[in-house]
Nucleic acid binder design. Structure first.
Lengths: 221, 221
DNA sequence: TTGCTCGTCTTACGTCGTAAGGCTACCTTA
DNA sequence: TAAGGTAGCCTTACGACGTAAGACGAGCAA
């Protein structure tokens, strides 16, 4: 890395570092290292680490915008739903490439240009669908982070495949959490194709998304 | 603070420290200080800071469980919706008391007993409503963190009240984000009761919640 | 009395973000 | 062309963090 430092190069390098080593690896020193510079040199291009993280949000969101800008789908009237659905699932792909990034988005109320631009496009699609501005406002809040393609999961029976041990552990909790356990055992039984693990994140995301989009569709004038 | 240290006292103190100074104030040294001890003494009762944070999740969720356990509402058949709604809005109150806590929940896949117990109760209510186990599973994923009463907002026109300056700033962005700006100006105009700020978080939360609950209700057999 | 073990404290290490200021290469301007 | 300034990068150092290693004292068991 011999080229001169740039705010833009710094931010792109930050994404690269996090891609390789996770968010924990994103250190000012490590960031400088991959740029062939010293930590303090970064501060000429960036006020502090917070600004690096803000910049990361911007880089990721720009990546999303580049993708969704290429989508050319009708959005007038009833077509709004498919258009919004595609937009959101496209954005989601970016977060699948940068799994660490959701944590950064969660930690700041991002009002940078890229995020505003993404939301602007969202408002346009909903407007095409015939929603009022007030409805659109509610819709954006109802979608929350889902509009960018990710959700906060609190319920996760465990990553990894459904093993015999985990089923045994489940049976051990049947007394303490009877309803939960009987649900999970049925889930595991219904889907013996257990290599995928307990839950199919993508399917669940789409289920929740469709639930909301269908609900919104019913509100249209 | 002269009483002997306890894992439980440590965890409760952690919640207190975060309540007073935010999550950033939750330091092993600060935590020891409010307990009248030294930092390293904590490690006898707690493996590391991660375990403190896990414990904080447990304390907060227990606080939630204490509240929702007192709810005595019918949940059979169509009554499921009101029961779940009340449960979730009750949980939400706890996070309004501990605003910093959402960040802790987000940062870990919490499978501690308290969270399992909360989810167990949720499954029971949905079961009472007549949902299949498979539907309940989808429902829990669709609700995500909303089942505990909080959401990840990415869209926030700005905290604080709607001032003349912020409206002027809005007009300045009309060229870059036309749809977004025209929506926001209409929102601000429709609701001149601007002291509340741009968005009523509680109203928006309930809107999104009802959207999902209504959608689920239509799936019932 | 002796010795163990439980709970706490002292000291210290490595890592983090970053403040303060030094060094050089280049540009401006007389 | 010489003088001075500034842009860009670096060195050094500080305080805060999590925590490893082990010392210390009190209480109990033998």
């Amino acid at each position: 890395m011999k080229r001169p430092l740039t705010r833009d190069r710094v931010l792109r390098a930050a994404v690269r570092v996090a891609d390789e080593g996770g968010l924990g690896a994103l250190t000012m020193r490590r960031l400088a290292e991959v740029l062939g510079a010293e930590a303090m040199s970064l501060y000429y291009h960036v006020r502090n680490k917070e600004e690096v993280l803000d910049g990361v949000v911007e880089v990721i969101t720009s990546e999303i915008n580049d993708l969704v800008d290429k989508i050319d789908l009708p959005s007038e009237g009833a077509a709004w739903k498919a258009a919004v659905r595609t937009r959101i699932l496209t954005a989601r792909e970016v977060f699948l490439r940068h799994p660490w990034a959701t944590g950064v988005f969660e930690s700041r109320t991002s009002s940078n240009p890229a995020v505003l631009r993404y939301n602007d496009g969202m408002v346009r699609l909903l407007r095409d669908g015939g929603f009022t501005h007030d409805q659109i406002h509610h819709a954006l809040h109802a979608l929350g982070s889902r509009s960018l393609g990710f959700t906060q999961e609190l319920f996760d029976p465990g990553t990894g495949p459904v093993t015999e041990e985990s089923l045994a552990a489940l049976r051990g909790m049947a007394d303490a959490f009877p309803h939960l356990v009987s649900m999970l055992t049925e889930i595991a039984h219904d889907d013996p194709d257990s290599t995928l693990g307990w839950c199919d994140d993508q399917k669940e995301f789409e289920f929740g998304l469709d639930l909301i989009l269908d609900g919104l569709d019913r509100l249209r004038a």
